[in-house]
Design a protein around this nucleic acid. Structure first.
Lengths: 234, 234
DNA sequence: AGATTATGCGTATGAGATACGCTAATTAGC
DNA sequence: GCTAATTAGCGTATCTCATACGCATAATCT
């Protein structure tokens, strides 16, 4: 995708939205406003409806004007992604790592629920931006503050973050199960997918408290696993 | 995206690749060959290089010919995704759920490493196809065979699957860390990202056995957490 | 052989990203 | 103030794609 997204996200440059001193026509647009409108479109209609033209229309300008503020579409998307994380998470400091990571996880979840298109972007090859760096740093701090080794802390964050990203997938898709199991209607289903079939036939799924929030269930399991490891280390 | 991807993946229809009986010009192309070539391009160059024209060229045919076999590009992509999972996993049956899920997880990992573009697709809103259903069924069987309740089994599979999907993200991106931490070079890094900075400064990261394979580290934690839960249930 | 039925695919259309270059609006220097 | 320098706004042209339409082609059926 974008050649040097890193520079884009971190450096100053000709395309920076920063207000300028000196000669030249003043800019009515700004990188911030462009990114904000693009995010608004994506939130409302999905990333596939974000086009340079659509974004420009919202800003009452021509499509080509945007290129004075962002190098191109790919870079705009990278900026959109990081823009969803400009607000750092709020974590309890004094209640131990588990409470802090639960808070962190729930805030990440909320973030991706607000911007479902962003989850797919997280799965790209992307340079980390200032926003994402802040979230990462906050999570690392939780474990480092606990006195854990650097490598264990990083691995723990990656484990929790990994779980979250993956667990949100089905959730942001067709809710939890509207027709995820539609394939069981197929004639050969009982034969080819006996376990899924048995599961659906069991019938206990509808009322299950666990399935009402699989995200939390899995999160607690992951944290249990980490807790066990951490306790063993001490 | 695709309107009724379900029918596409499961039903017979005018676009089915199946060989036909009766009058009419015989088809030189087939859905299978088209999907296979598309997957080959994506594996080699990324999903963004898969275009109807490119695929057609590889098959020595015109772009429009493909539309006799697949309804459109979105549907082709859905078929590509499910095609990566046509081979069901091979799991040990007699060594308990943990060994089976480790095998399952590693095979999922191998699958996404072979087709990195597929991971991003997993994050779409998509109907489950015959291939993916097979993998899901296999994993469900692991827990059901253990005598676990239906809802617990499903939640457990979702937890492991969630972890895998998320954990593979950084791995399929810029390897583990070539410049994930490049942002620490920034002037304000020590101030804004003190924990990440401390982590990098600690220096123990390079030689860490844990970080050499964060995927396995996290996987073991998730399984530990599940094990604890399962044991408590009995 | 002629009717029937599918497939192959050239051409046309329309959307989208973006290079180029001109115009407009400022400020800096005099 | 005037002029030069500098930068933003953006119309137009181009290129890449997906894909609708319709005709030619090549089988089978009677």
């Amino acid at each position: 995708m974008s050649g040097d997204a890193y520079a884009l996200l971190w450096e100053d440059g000709p395309h920076t939205g920063r207000t300028r001193r000196g000669p030249g026509r003043p800019s009515g647009l700004s990188r911030e406003r462009i990114v904000a409108e693009a995010v608004a479109i994506a939130d409302a209609e999905g990333l596939q409806h974000v086009s340079m033209k659509r974004v420009a229309e919202r800003l009452d300008s021509g499509a080509m004007s945007l290129y004075r503020h962002v190098p191109g579409k790919d870079e705009l998307v990278a900026l959109m992604y990081d823009a969803t994380m400009t607000e750092p998470p709020h974590l309890p400091e004094s209640e131990g790592w588990r409470a802090a990571m639960i808070a962190w996880s729930r805030q990440v979840r909320a973030l991706f629920r607000a911007h479902p298109w962003a989850l797919a972007l997280a799965t790209r090859n992307h340079a980390i931006g200032p926003g994402e760096a802040g979230w990462l740093d906050a999570a690392l701090g939780v474990f480092l503050r606990e006195g854990l080794a650097a490598d264990v802390s990083l691995a723990a964050v990656l484990a929790v973050n990994g779980y979250i990203g993956g667990a949100l997938r089905p959730e942001l898709q067709g809710q939890n199960d509207p027709q995820w199991f539609r394939f069981l209607e197929h004639d050969l289903a009982p034969l080819k997918y006996p376990n899924a079939f048995r599961l659906a036939s069991a019938g206990g799924l509808a009322g299950s408290a666990i399935l009402r929030d699989t995200f939390e269930f899995g999160l607690q399991r992951v944290l249990d696993g980490l807790e066990q490891y951490i306790d063993d280390q001490r």
